[in-house]
Design a binder for these strands. Structure first.
Length: 644
DNA sequence: GTTTCGGTTCTTTTT
DNA sequence: GAACCGAAAC
């Protein structure tokens, strides 16, 4: 058995082996937060707590998996029984069991962002809110989400719409109501519904609540500063019995308020739990002192935070560099040159990351890296599981599992040649709003409603649907997808996309990925909740060659690299102009985001400051350097401008 | 009457 | 890219 004292410092040890009750661990960046959580889990298992009575809530599935894997290495196989995952996963798991208690069917489908958006779009069209003067569906969607996550009426958020918007606040509420009704009719929940409904379950059903309160003797929450109000209440209720609530977080790294996260949750934690014990982790093992000096300086001015100062343990090295470049092109060339330099001095490609505020910030760099054949990895704006081709092949599974899933049906039928919106609507009404793909009569009815040119390809799809029962494929999602690909989809991809082969590779990956699921239902239930980071873990594991990592700062949270280059440090980009005017605490949050970016770096840090931004029409826009650069004491950084 | 195709415009952050 | 719009093609 491991002696925890040998592997943890005093701060970490105190937290990991504490007795119980409410506990707040304030863990600054790079101070071994994950390590502490891992050993906390291992310690509890070691102490004889049954793993199934431990609940570990994390921000991503990747984090949960990593922690449990590491805890297993310390405390043995028993750790496998710990409940670990994201809030959405927990909610989904509970609702699959208890949905009927709040008036839902157990087999509800989960709408991902893409599905939600098109459903909102369809609601807007029904009310004739179409045209340039109306907000985009995605914008309305975000209002609905804000309302759901704060439990306030949607009218409270219409101020976020542009003043030119033609939508009155009653109209917004109307569409919001329609959207909820449509979801109910489809038997579907969006991401927010999962949380909201899970909370409803707890509020309305004391018996169920009691059952889980009893089960979970210990509740551990990672990244507590990024929980929203619903999540905080969920945690509070579920841990309300045994009151062993262990929350870990860093208010400096709260960067999700636009998604409803309320860092008051962590700030006011001591008031809500007066009997808590607090632990601070401030010893940083990751970064050289010069990088920590920049991190400490940039965050110091933010209001309302727990005072923490990163203490360095590593030896002095070089100062972070600020490179003032002309424009995006020059920035890309600078980054390329720096990457080559770092490689020459011995860093592996996978030791280097380029971080930025928004995905489109990396376009120029991507072009340069591609041209120069520098391998790189990127998780783009579109999530793996929301790409068109992935959703296309999943639609046949969805149709098999849920007869009321109109969205999947539309998607599937739209793949047939010569079938568009009208053809789909005709078929759906011929079916009377229910398509049971496993019923031969239903399949025939679809066939009859199709125009002749589409019937032949539909027969091929029918054969796949038929085989589902006949050959009992309900435990093999991969096989269904494979057959569908052969029957129809391969041809479709090759005719539709110029990067067809790559998309087919993705699908092959997906088929492999289905192997870990026991049934089509289980696969579908999980797939909507998988993030691109989760998918990427697989991709990276399978990739023979490593590359430079390109990432948004948000996606880089929790990760670290030897060398980090940050792009577009200009006012308007970083901090983002929109955030500044859209929300009150915008600047403070952007500053925390910058803090997160800086603290990803172990040895080398470069900050790029372009002077101008080129618009599409060729005009240039002058940019002032980011206020985050300007407010740094000049002696903390080295100016390397003019290297060219 | 429908579907498809080609051109144009825009791009914050994510479970 | 992908969403949207108008025009060509079926």
């Amino acid at each position: 058995m491991t002696d925890f004292r040998d592997v943890l410092n005093d701060e970490q040890y105190a937290a990991a082996t504490a007795e119980g009750g409410p506990m707040l661990v304030l863990a600054a960046a790079g101070t071994g937060k994950t390590r502490t959580l891992v050993y906390r889990v291992a310690y509890l298992v070691d102490q004889g707590v049954a793993p199934r009575r431990i609940l570990l809530l994390t921000f991503t599935n990747r984090a949960a998996k990593e922690m449990l894997d590491r805890a297993r290495a310390v405390a043995g196989e028993g750790v496998g029984g710990v409940w670990g995952g994201t809030f959405h996963h927990l909610a989904n798991r509970l609702l699959r069991r208890h949905a009927p208690e709040i008036g839902y069917d157990r087999g509800y489908t989960i709408l991902d962002q893409d599905d939600s958006r098109s459903l909102v779009s369809s609601c807007m069209k029904d009310r004739k809110f179409t045209g340039k003067e109306f907000p985009k569906p995605a914008v309305l969607m975000s209002l609905f989400s804000s309302a759901a996550n704060t439990e306030r009426p949607v009218e409270d958020f219409v101020w976020k719409l542009s003043e030119k918007s033609a939508m009155a606040s009653e109209d917004v509420a109307l569409v919001c109501g329609d959207y909820s009704a449509r979801k109910k009719k489809l038997g579907a929940m969006d991401f927010d519904d999962l949380l909201v409904n899970c909370l409803r379950l707890f509020r309305e059903n004391p018996a169920t609540t009691e059952r889980y309160r009893e089960q979970f003797v210990h509740v551990l929450v990672d990244e507590y500063q990024d929980t929203n109000r619903i999540q905080a209440e969920l945690v509070g209720r579920i841990a309300g019995g045994h009151r062993n609530l262990f929350v870990v977080g860093d208010d400096f790294q709260s960067i999700y308020s636009w998604r409803g996260a309320d860092f008051q949750n962590i700030i006011s934690f001591p008031e809500r739990y007066p009997d808590l014990s607090t632990y601070k982790l401030e010893t940083n093992y990751r970064s050289v002192p010069e990088i920590l000096a920049v991190a400490n300086a940039c965050i110091a001015g933010n209001p309302e935070q727990f005072q923490k100062t990163l203490r360095a343990t590593r030896d002095s090295y070089r100062k972070p560099a600020v490179a003032r470049v002309r424009d995006g092109q020059e920035q890309a060339r600078y980054v390329l040159e720096e990457i080559r330099q770092l490689r020459r001095s011995g860093y592996k490609a996978s030791d280097i990351a380029v971080l930025y505020r928004a995905h489109f910030n990396s376009m120029e760099l991507q072009m340069v890296l591609t041209r120069e054949q520098v391998p790189y990895m990127i998780t783009s704006g579109v999530r793996f599981f929301e790409q068109a081709h992935i959703k296309d092949v999943c639609s046949i599974l969805r149709v098999l599992v849920s007869p009321t899933d109109e969205m999947a049906f539309s998607r599937l039928l739209g793949l047939l040649p010569g079938v568009g919106p009208k053809g789909i609507a005709k078929a759906w009404s011929a079916l009377g709003g229910v398509f049971n793909a496993r019923d031969a009569a239903h399949r025939k009815r679809v066939r009859a409603s199709l125009r002749p040119a589409a019937r032949e390809p539909w027969s091929a799809v029918e054969a796949v649907l038929q085989a589902y029962d006949e050959e009992d494929l309900s435990d093999d999602a991969g096989e269904v997808i494979h057959r569908f690909m052969e029957a129809l989809y391969k041809k479709h991809v090759m005719n539709t996309y110029d990067n067809g082969p790559r998309r087919l590779d993705d699908i092959t990956e997906l088929i492999l990925y289905t192997g870990r699921f026991e049934s089509v239902e289980q696969f579908l239930s999980d797939v909507a909740l998988l993030t691109n980071l989760d998918a990427e873990v697989e991709a990276v594991a399978n990739a023979p060659e490593d590359g430079i990592r390109l990432s948004t700062v948000h996606q880089a949270k929790g990760l670290e690299w030897s060398a980090v280059i940050i792009l577009w440090m200009t006012d308007g980009m970083f901090p983002s102009a929109r955030t500044l005017w859209e929300s009150e605490g915008g600047e403070a949050e952007e500053r925390r985001l910058f803090y997160v970016a800086v603290t990803r770096a172990k040895d080398e840090l470069r900050l790029c400051v372009p002077e101008v931004r080129r618009n599409r029409d060729g005009t240039v826009m002058y940019c002032s350097p980011s206020r985050f650069i300007e407010e740094l004491p000049p002696d903390l950084v080295e100016d390397v401008s003019g290297w060219f």
